[in-house]
């Protein structure tokens, strides 16, 4: 048996196929390209001094301890979490009913929803933020510069991710048919939403909610424009760089905070991939029309 395997030309030659080598090089290259900066940031956050050699001179947890006992950092993480949670919650409360309504009752509002879902991609956040500031100055001056206005702003730029995720989940579940079937079974609108619609689009809502959360979590420009008083993690990081005046450890603390920021966003992305079980492509704009074409 062993002899046959060893002399089989196909088997011995296979690992040397050029295509496989190419793939491996590509993969290793990409992997390094993506991870090297993170590894560097992590090393920097635990380095005592890192100037002369390829690796740090020594290691310490001091920067982590001092960063996460700093009230400013704790406060920044706190307000970022609250902001992102409120943004995701508000988006879910508005977008899920809107997507359902547009599918089951009034397909005409789809055009409006899809158009507004394109705006955050067509315009820089800075421009949207400035527009919101102007608009709120006209209709609700009391809101200017406040946290609630920032939540509204983030909800506006994060909702397309939720909309595409939820709309894709509704298309995949065939929510119109299920709603009709539930209606013929005697279900009231509330019963249909609670027992039929929500359970069947749950992965979409979770995914979209996570994406909206992540969008808000890492957003900088709009916080800067709309609500100068609100102190989030990206703002803290920007100020750490801006106010650097040579004191020891300040960049190392920044590296520690950046690392935590990265881990949070990476965990969210991993959760998104997990909840979509290999169908993450459905979250992209235009994926729905491709699906329809495949079904048709």
């Amino acid at each position: 048996m062993t002899a046959t395997t060893a002399t089989s030309p196909g088997r011995t030659r296979e690992p040397l196929r050029p295509a496989r080598i190419g793939q491996t090089i590509m993969f290793v290259g990409l992997f390094t390209y993506f991870t090297l900066p993170m590894v560097a940031v992590f090393l920097y956050s635990i380095a005592t001094r890192w100037t002369a050699h390829i690796l740090p001179d020594g290691y310490t947890l001091d920067w982590w301890v001092s960063a996460f006992t700093d009230q400013a950092v704790i406060g920044a993480f706190g307000s970022t979490l609250v902001l992102a949670t409120l943004t995701a919650t508000l988006d879910i409360l508005v977008v899920v009913p809107a997507a359902y309504w547009s599918r089951v009752r009034n397909p005409r509002i789809r055009t409006i929803v899809e158009l507004s879902a394109a705006i955050p991609f067509a315009l820089p956040y800075l421009v949207i933020g400035f527009g919101l500031l102007q608009f709120s100055g006209i209709v609700a001056p009391a809101l200017q510069g406040t946290f609630p206005l920032l939540v509204l702003g983030h909800a506006a730029i994060a909702f397309p991710f939720l909309y595409w995720a939820v709309d894709g989940a509704m298309a995949a579940a065939g929510i119109e048919r299920l709603s009709e079937a539930a209606e013929t079974c005697g279900g009231s609108p509330a019963q249909i939403v609670r027992r039929v619609v929500l359970p069947n689009i749950k992965p979409g809502v979770v995914t979209g909610g996570l994406l909206a959360f992540a969008t808000s979590f890492g957003e900088f420009a709009m916080v800067q424009t709309i609500a100068r008083g609100v102190y989030t993690v990206p703002i803290w990081s920007a100020e750490a760089i801006r106010s650097y005046s040579g004191e020891s450890g300040s960049f190392n603390r920044l590296a520690a905070v950046t690392m935590v920021n990265f881990v949070v966003l990476f965990a969210l992305s991993a959760a998104v991939v997990y909840f979509n079980r290999g169908q993450t492509v459905r979250l992209l704009p235009g994926a729905r029309s491709i699906e329809q074409r495949e079904q048709g």
Partner: peptide
């Protein structure tokens, strides 16, 4: 007072 059967089954997957 109706019951309906659909071409696409339309059973609740959950």
């Amino acid at each position: 007072p109706i019951g309906m059967v659909f071409q696409s089954y339309a059973l609740f997957p959950n």
